[in-house]
């Protein structure tokens, strides 16, 4: 089962995460990602017959918040953590308009 991850799959995951790697880096990372997946794969050996899937770790159901608006008053602090800002907005590299 080890190192079963095709290199294209690793490249695809990197692309979805908008990460760019050299060929050399991708070789190394494909190997590392494969061994992580192999480790997680061992979970499949556990017998889960009849066990309900766990969506959250608490047993709470219907924990909902009443619809009341609260201003954080943290705009300046939040913007101070952005790498670059302009006119109260977050400045990012130009978005090549592929989505909308």
């Amino acid at each position: 089962m080890s190192n079963s991850l095709p290199r294209e799959d690793a490249a695809h995951v990197a692309q979805l995460a908008k990460l760019h790697f050299s060929d050399q880096q991708l070789d190394v990372l494909t190997g590392q990602l494969a061994s992580i997946l192999d480790l997680v794969e061992t979970l499949n050996e556990v017998d889960t017959e009849g066990v309900e899937p766990t969506y959250t770790v608490s047993n709470n159901v219907n924990v909902l918040r009443e619809d009341l608006a609260v201003k954080s008053g943290q705009k300046a602090a939040l913007l101070a953590n952005a790498p670059e800002t302009q006119d109260g907005q977050i400045k990012v590299p130009a978005i090549i308009d592929e989505e909308s």
């Binding site: 918040r65 608006a69 609260v70 943290q74 939040l78 907005q89």
Partner: peptide, 17 residues
């Protein structure tokens, strides 16, 4: 999140962590 929903406010005014 409890941030207000209000169209037309200054940018990033209605945001929290």
């Amino acid at each position: 999140s409890p941030s207000p929903v209000n169209f037309g406010d200054p940018a990033n005014e209605n945001t929290n962590v």
